[in-house]
């Protein structure tokens, strides 16, 4: 069965924000909304051994979805392939899913009165293409694919390198795996 996931190789990420801008343009996001910001942390270390950490974010498409459980209308959904999305027709923007999401991945679109979020560019994915942020990343820091495909890039990276997931301790089972810049050796 298909289970979409993404691997973020932060060793490769240079914080250029290409993915952030590409996503914003592709999804025609409002001015105050970003689906995939890149966090910067650092510099760490002592000169000349300095490094910056770049953490690209997006919806984690959790296996245990607090946002979907919190939604009182059923507009927040998760497909069998793991993609979490919002059916705009059913959304009343009550804010319950925004409050429930630990990753700040949901946003109010005040003009349309709905909640919007990253949906892994599901229309592109169903057409056999990659999400737009993955396609744009010239450093190949973002890798997208089917986690259940043993020979796929995502499964190989997750199974061969040490990866981390954000806020794993709260039990949301996020499906975005990070190869951290100071690690990743299996």
């Amino acid at each position: 069965m298909t289970r979409y996931a993404m691997v973020m190789d932060t060793r490769r990420c240079v914080g250029c924000d290409s993915c952030t801008i590409a996503c914003k343009v592709w999804n025609e996001l409002p001015l105050d909304v970003l689906f995939c910001p890149v966090l910067r942390d650092g510099p760490h270390g002592v000169y000349p051994h300095l490094h910056m950490n770049h953490t690209p974010l997006l919806c984690m498409h959790c296996a245990e979805t607090p946002c979907v459980h919190a939604c009182p209308t059923g507009a927040s959904r998760q497909d069998a392939d793991g993609i979490v999305w919002v059916e705009e027709k059913g959304c009343i923007t009550c804010g319950a899913c925004i409050a429930a999401c630990p990753y700040n991945a949901r946003h109010r679109d005040r003009q349309r009165g709905v909640v919007i979020k990253c949906d892994f560019c599901k229309d592109r994915v169903r057409d056999g293409e990659e999400p737009f942020c993955v396609k744009t990343c010239h450093q190949r820091a973002r890798v997208f694919g089917d986690l259940d495909d043993k020979h796929g890039a995502v499964a190989r990276l997750v199974n061969s390198l040490r990866t981390e997931r954000l806020f794993e301790d709260i039990g949301t089972e996020p499906q975005v795996y990070y190869i951290m810049s100071k690690g990743g050796q299996g």
């Binding site: 459980h69 009182p72 507009a75 009343i92 009550c94 909640v115």
Partner: peptide
Amino acid sequence: LGRPLQFWRVFSRERAVL
């Protein structure tokens, strides 16, 4: 609510706390 006139939808799902 962002869409006040659609408030009735809040009654439509059985498992949410809200």
